[in-house]
């Protein structure tokens, strides 16, 4: 474990706590893409298949359980909670996320560390996570003004993988045999997808103005 990865995991956890706070405190999920949340739940379920077979550390196991439980709870809430589901921007959340599923799965069949069930699904989860934010970014552009908590949620979500890039650089310097090309290249793509969001987030922070994404 290194400071970059620990900060990355904490940033990821903070983003999830912000989303849970928004849904719990406002009983609303306006501006949140259910499709992105469903993709994240799938990312965690397919990535943490080794939850019961490979014990790495208490920290690792606890964090995996937290990520799986929180992502499923958010999807369940957005689908079934009477107040929350009513605030879901169904008509704006129209990104065809099934294409992201198919593309990630096909790529995982081609590019993986080992052609084994768990490894192909692990690679699938890495590719899927890289593009899972797309429905959310499209929804933000369509919904115009972004409420504060939603903006913070997306910011921390983007920042976590950027910190992981520093973690991979650090691990590579420590041990040149450390090569995680699949995770690293996907992490770069994932972070790049946030580039314009980060730009408008920075502008709104600098001008102390409301976060506005151009349509």
């Amino acid at each position: 474990m290194n400071i970059f990865r620990f900060l990355g995991d904490m940033t990821h956890l903070i983003s999830i706590l912000i989303l849970l706070l928004k849904i719990y405190a406002t009983k609303s999920c306006s501006g949140i893409s259910l499709k992105t949340q469903e993709l994240y739940a799938l990312v965690f379920l397919t990535r943490y298949l080794d939850l019961f077979t490979d014990f790495i550390s208490v920290y690792n196991t606890v964090m995996k359980l937290v990520f799986i439980a929180s992502s499923l709870a958010i999807v369940w809430c957005m689908r079934n909670h009477p107040l929350v589901r009513r605030s879901y921007d169904k008509q704006l959340d129209t990104f065809r996320h099934y294409f992201l599923l198919l593309a990630s799965f096909l790529l995982a069949l081609l590019l993986h560390e080992k052609f084994a069930f768990q490894e192909v699904l692990w690679a699938f989860s890495i590719y899927l996570e890289a593009v899972a934010i797309l429905p959310q970014l499209v929804l933000l552009q369509r919904s115009g003004n972004v409420d504060n908590l939603t903006g913070q949620y997306v910011f921390f979500l983007g920042a976590y993988r950027a910190l992981y890039i520093f973690n991979w650089i650090y691990r590579y310097f420590i041990d040149p045999h450390f090569t995680r090309w699949i995770a690293c290249v996907s992490g770069l793509v994932q972070t790049a997808l946030y580039a314009d969001f980060f730009y408008y987030y920075f502008i709104s922070w600098k001008n102390n103005a409301k976060l506005q994404l151009p349509a």
Partner: peptide, 10 residues
């Protein structure tokens, strides 16, 4: 033969 690489990252 490199041992099965365990994914130690989240």
């Amino acid at each position: 033969e490199d041992e099965d690489e365990v994914h130690d990252e989240l």
